[in-house]
Design a protein around this nucleic acid. Structure first.
Lengths: 345, 345
DNA sequence: CTGTTAGCGCTTTCAT
DNA sequence: ATGAAAGCGCTAACAG
């Protein structure tokens, strides 16, 4: 393991360098490197020795360029934001699946910006990824049609693609949200507020739809004053909840449709001293939700399952699966912890 | 934006295809694509039209293979585990820096496994990354020497490299831990327990050293029964804390040297109903630490600064910087929130 | 079993 | 201003 002086400058050694050192033709080196067989033990030993001595490593780029299948054994992962625990959990699951298959992963955060979606899909596409795993950022993925035609597999996750015939893997957003809201209604609440993410985000729209559906199903009136959309960060959510609860006829329960929004609501309730008075159910679980007081009731998603499933579908496509695009639903689970079981005051 | 039928099968179009369609030599296409200039406006327009019509995108792999500088505009990021908020924050910061420079990022989680470190560094190296950003997983990085010689820049983060002359960016682990422990001692605690990660992890050793230093500095005796190392997950930490507090002469304060360990301690204290009786200071901040009761006092790291700084150093190296390896320290901050200010009982 | 030749898609060098 | 030829490091298709 000593730091040998390589005889060939700072350059990485090539098969020709190895061949020269082992006194064989460079095709023989290729055979050994690729375990093609058909090389005498003597030569093979010489080649392996030379490889070791030079610390030769095949140039993957050159290999890909020449190979007939054009596989790069790489995929691109386009998330909303890795710093968000949901995205991070998805990435981890994807990495596991990819790693198992000897596939490397490019990753990037899009921050809900369609321009970034286009730019990064293009950048990854130009690098010849075999597949793209995408959390759609905009309302239109048709720009990826050429990528698809060029043979790049694409699977969307967390949200379905628009105007692009690809598989997708999403949580049961509408069903889950409806379940959360019904849970509040079952506790006797009639004034349940909805605070959700931007309407440009499909999951936000679905969760809102679930909210409306649950109200209808429970025979509760819809009060537009209790619905606030386009809230995407903790600080804004905090402000919104503060305002809602300051109204003359405030809600007795809150349904927060995104994890950062839930956290903002917790902060607002805490500051107003209302955390044990106003019920709260959040969509998407978060670390320590069970240690707050009251512990936060949530409609939990399963990001690891979403990532794993999406990667599975992607690799199936890469391996030649051509069935029509499907949408796989990953179930959500209502976790009762306390905040969602507070009765109306 | 319609889905045009490309005239050339499922294959991606090449410069030759563009050249044929634009009726020019393919070198002219290359000139246009690379903005080399020296192309008449007429031909340039024809070429751009053909590029548009065929949705041509240069094959990055082929370009790299031929170029003299051998740059791939890609880097590899080897983290401990993206699912850990610390790693996720680092990745996000790195992505930002890379993106700004038009560089793509391969990422992977090593799970503290030296074999994975070797395998993934090798995989990324074979793909010709310009640089590697690494959270060292084992006690020896000398296997990367060949990579370094081959011209790959390497910067370690969170921990320094062993047996490899590269830059590193780490938090002030020892200083920060000592500050946290002194803070507990200042509140009057004399029996302060230390619960830390595996001793194979350099940061764990440094934080332990900080603990010892603070005890010495405060004239407190070291009780080996209060020191538990090699704890790496929440469940184990929970058990360890439960055991410690069940002893005849229990600690009155806990210093937990890793974020998951801190969470485990919070769970144990809560279950035992001691969260307001036993003081707690954790190393590394976590989401919602301020909303727990008591809110958790921590020695906060700045993962974003660590990632940003490391990426900066890496790109400087890639751009030819050859000063001797440096180690950059990123300061930690003690955040008093309540749990660390509980006096001894 | 081993070696030769061609050429992946592109940039470089050199010619026109 | 344009193009032809060479060749990056490798695999594929054929020889021997």
């Amino acid at each position: 393991m000593s730091l040998r002086e390589s005889p060939i400058g700072g350059r990485r050694p090539t098969m020709r360098d190895v061949a020269a050192r082992a006194q064989v033709s460079f095709k023989t080196v290729s055979r050994v490197v690729n375990d093609e067989g058909g090389v005498s033990p003597l030569l093979e030993r010489r080649v392996r020795k030379a490889i070791e001595e030079l610390d030769f490593r095949p140039n993957v780029g050159a290999r890909i360029l020449r190979r007939s299948d054009r596989r790069t054994a790489s995929i691109g992962l386009l998330l909303e934001d890795v710093a968000n625990p949901f995205s991070a959990a998805v990435q981890r699951a994807v990495e596991n699946e990819a790693d198992q298959r000897g596939v490397v992963v490019y990753s990037a955060s899009l921050d809900e910006d369609p321009a970034r979606e286009r730019a990064l899909a293009k950048a990854f596409g130009a690098r010849g990824v075999d597949g793209l795993l995408l959390v759609p950022a905009g309302g239109d993925q048709s720009h990826l049609a050429a990528e698809l035609r060029a043979g790049t597999a694409i699977v969307c996750l967390d949200r379905e693609a628009s105007n692009l015939p690809v598989d997708s893997v999403v949580a049961t957003n509408e069903i889950g949200a409806a379940e959360g809201v019904r849970h509040l209604a079952a506790a006797g609440h009639r004034r349940i507020a909805f605070i959700g993410d931007r309407r440009t985000v499909a999951t936000a729209r679905q969760r809102h739809a679930g909210y409306l559906e649950a109200l209808r199903g429970c025979g509760l009136p819809l009060d537009p004053a209790l619905v606030v959309q386009d809230v995407r960060d903790t600080a804004t959510a905090d402000g919104v909840v503060t305002a809602l609860l300051g109204h003359p006829d405030p809600p007795t329960a809150l349904f927060t449709a995104q994890n950062l929004v839930t956290v903002g609501a917790v902060r607002a309730l805490r500051r107003m001293g209302l955390e044990h008075a106003v019920a709260l159910v959040g969509f998407d679980d978060f670390l320590l939700a069970d240690l707050l007081s009251p512990a936060v009731t949530v409609v939990a998603q399963d990001p690891a399952a979403i990532g794993r499933t999406a990667a599975g579908l992607l690799f199936a496509r890469i391996d030649g699966d051509t069935v029509p695009p499907r949408c796989r639903l990953v179930p959500t689970t209502l976790i009762r912890r306390g905040s969602g079981e507070i009765p109306p005051s």
